[in-house]
């Protein structure tokens, strides 16, 4: 194989598969090259390109934290051609991976701060990597509040580790859009629950990811609570191909989401071309 080739994936093996919701699966994969797996390092929020050979490649966030190195986890919603095929993969199957790509969360600037995670649906995937990283480095961060919502309880990902999050001193607020038999947590849209929770913006950074409509109203909510643009972080979605800033399609103005993102502060986004 050619050295330093940004297009050629590493081969990896699927180790475990979790059905998170009716259309979201998590894959735990391990690079076939043991040495590379051992030395694999990344920043929470960085992404990877997963390949199913013969079908294609798609971009997903590495949803496991770099503090847990036995595998790389990706959570994948079934929406298109590639994700359809990824959902058919079973333990033992081969997959290609190009990672880590993108910028990741600004970890250093978050240290010592109170943190507010606001996630919706599959949007929890990039937040989870950072959340677990913070739990594993709990002393470096202040209070952590997480508001996570989905349409129904069955649409929430990572249900198997909510207890672990809470045990890691995370104030976890779970909500679903409407009443549901057996549901004992909150009911209501994420922006509404945010308003009710009303976390203080003092020394706090809000990290938001979810469907565009949720993000839109959460941003209004955060503004009302007094969050400044530089206190709000989000991750962007764009169609990507090369993932290394060459192929051209994921630009917003002169920035490339694959290279300069996908993590941006609202302040950065405000300075970019209004083309979302």
């Amino acid at each position: 194989m050619h050295a330093c080739d940004p297009y050629t994936p590493e081969l990896a093996t699927v180790k475990e598969v979790y059905q998170e919701t009716h259309n979201i699966r998590s894959l735990r994969i391990v690079l076939n090259d043991e040495e590379k797996m051992k030395n694999f390092s990344y920043i929470p929020g960085q992404v990877g390109q997963l390949s199913v050979f013969g079908v294609g490649e798609s971009t997903f966030v590495i949803s496991s934290p770099p503090t847990r190195k036995e595998f790389l986890q990706f959570s994948i919603m079934r929406v298109g051609e590639v994700t359809q095929r990824i959902h058919q993969l079973q333990p033992g199957d081969q997959i290609g991976v190009r990672a880590p790509l993108g910028n990741g969360f600004p970890i250093e600037s978050l240290k010592g701060k109170d943190i507010l995670f606001v996630g919706g649906g599959i949007g929890m995937a990039p937040l989870r990597t950072l959340l677990l990283y913070m739990i594993d480095n709990r002393a470096d961060f202040g209070n952590i509040t997480t508001i996570y919502g989905a349409r129904t309880p069955n649409d929430l990902c990572y249900r198997y580790e909510f207890d672990e999050w809470r045990n890691g001193k995370v104030d976890l607020v779970l909500t679903v859009d409407a009443e549901f038999p057996g549901w004992k947590e909150r009911v209501g849209f994420v922006p509404t629950v945010l308003k009710e929770e009303a976390p203080s913006p003092n020394n706090r950074v809000a990290i938001v990811c979810g469907p565009p409509i949720m993000i839109k109203f959460v941003l209004f909510g955060l503004k009302e609570l007094g969050f400044e643009d530089e206190q709000i972080i989000s991750t962007l979605e764009r169609r990507m191909k090369c993932g290394v800033g060459i192929c051209g399609r994921c630009n917003i103005g002169s920035s490339y989401v694959c290279l300069d993102g996908p993590v941006f502060t609202m302040k950065q986004l405000g300075g970019m071309a209004p083309e979302m």
Partner: peptide, 24 residues
């Protein structure tokens, strides 16, 4: 204009990952 797309084309047991001109 250099923008390109990447697609897979497979036949039987082998295939190509292709880079081809795309258009914005």
């Amino acid at each position: 204009c250099y923008c390109f797309t990447i697609t897979d084309e497979a036949r039987d047991t082998e295939g190509d990952r292709l880079r081809s001109w795309d258009s914005c």
